[in-house]
Every structure is written in C-alpha cells, then in structure tokens.
C-alpha cells in the first residue's frame, strides 16, 4: 500500500496549516499544502489525495461569521469535487475554523427544506477561549477515532457553541452516533456537549478542539508534573486516518 497523501487547504487567514502538516507527517503521511485559489482553478486537483484537511485559523478574518466565507467558497466552487472525494471512500477533516467551514457548507449535516440544521455560534461566555479540555470519544463508525476513548486537547475559539435548529434534530445526532466527540466539562455552551461531529458516512469529521496541538509530549499542559509521555493524545487521530488506507 502506498503512503496516503494529505491535502491541507490553505485560504487567506488559515493559520494552523503547518502544525497540521507536522501532525500528519508524524503519523506517516505525505502532505501538501495548497491555496484554495489553486483548487478553484482546478477542482480535480483534490482527487490526487486521500485525505483533505481544512485547518484552523480565521479564514477571511471570520468576518460575517466564523468560517462562513470559506464555507460559501467550498459550496460554490468545490461542492461537486468534495462530494466525489467523500464518495470515493476518502477522508475529510475540519479542525476548528475548518469544522466551522465544513458545517456551514452543509458537508457534515446537510440542510433540509427549512435551511441549515446546525451551526457554531459565539461561545456562551462571549469570549475567545484558549484552554485544555477532556473529550469523551464515541468512535462508532468514524475511522479517525477508532480505538480512542478519551483525549486531552486544547480549544482556542470564540465561536464554538454547537447549536441545532430543533431539539429533535439534536437528539437525532446524538442517538445516531454522529456526536463522536463530547466535552466532559462543557467550555462554550454547546448543545449536547458536542465538540465534534461526523457526517452519516463517518468519513467527514469536524471538531472544535485542536488534536494537532497535542502531538508532542511537551504539548501536554502538565508534562513537567506528570512526566513525558511517548506522544500526545492527538496523534492517534492522525495515525488512524493513515491506517484507514492500509
């Protein structure tokens, strides 16, 4: 089996692309970072890769709403290419701003006849927050999370409060195993403590916390206390993504 190739999508204001690349490389992938303008010129470029990652950052300044402008570009210019990519049994990962963009582009929870079903709104605290959170993992059919029960990872966002249009739609997501990552202590007021969500196939995953920021043992907030682990909790997610193609 050849080494999977990962495409990290750059866009104006994306800023977690280098550490996402590092995490995937630690997990054994070949990584290329490409600007969204290159994909707009040639959407088929994406098909050369096995994994697409939309990294964290502040695309287009998060003007209007976090990830919204990028979400529109994904829908308007890359919608077909992305759906073909997903349907070819490939993986899509959106972290933080990438999650916001994928969700608002309808790639994780498609809109119904009444419009968008879910969104990520301003934190209940009204403030951007950088802090470490414990996640409970419900791996089910999500290849990124296979075998992971729990993760300690940082969040760093101002708009991460998961909101569903109706209670029954929220319960639907929870009961069908789509809410694969949930906060143990809810930091932002997300409904259902939802930190991460996958699509019906399980192959498209979006999450607010940053697994790529807990790859090295020295990333751990208490490593000076607890000693150095072999690796950070987040690395398993990237390794799982690579293993999926083996």
């Amino acid at each position: 089996m050849t080494t999977p190739r990962v495409l990290i999508l750059r866009a104006p204001g994306a800023n977690c692309d280098a550490e996402a690349q590092f995490a995937f490389e630690q997990a054994g992938a070949i990584v290329q970072r490409l600007h969204i303008n290159r994909l707009r010129e040639n959407p088929d470029l994406i098909q050369r890769f096995q994994i697409l990652t939309v990294p964290g950052g502040f695309t287009y300044g998060d003007d209007v709403a976090a990830g919204k402008v990028l979400a529109n570009q994904l829908s308007c210019f890359l919608g077909d290419a992305l759906r073909r990519f997903r349907d070819a049994e490939k993986l899509i990962l959106g972290v933080c701003n990438g999650f916001q963009a994928l969700l608002k582009a309808g790639l994780i929870v498609p809109p119904d006849e009444d419009g968008p079903v879910a969104t990520l709104a301003h934190n209940a605290s009204g403030m951007f927050q950088d802090r470490w959170v414990r996640l409970q993992v419900f791996p089910d059919n999500c290849p990124f999370l296979r075998g992971i029960e729990s993760m300690l990872v940082p969040i760093a966002h101002g708009e991460g409060r998961f909101v569903c249009r109706t209670q029954w739609q929220l319960e639907g997501l929870l009961q069908t195993g789509r809410a694969v990552l949930r906060y143990v202590q809810n930091p932002n007021g997300s409904q259902g403590d939802i930190a991460g969500l996958c699509d019906v196939t399980g192959r498209v995953l979006g999450l607010m916390p940053h697994p790529e920021r807990h790859v090295l043992p020295t990333h751990h907030p208490y490593w000076t206390r607890e000693g150095l682990a072999n690796e950070g909790d987040g690395l398993a997610l990237f390794r799982n993504a690579i293993r999926y193609f083996h």
Partner: peptide, 14 residues
C-alpha cells in the same frame, strides 16, 4: 491570557 491563542503553531512547551 485565555483570550489569546498561546498555542497556535504547535510550539508551546511551557
């Protein structure tokens, strides 16, 4: 401190 992202770029050690 919490309003600032102090970990982006993945280099945070202390």
């Amino acid at each position: 401190v919490r309003q600032y992202d102090h970990e982006v770029q993945g280099g945070s050690a202390i």
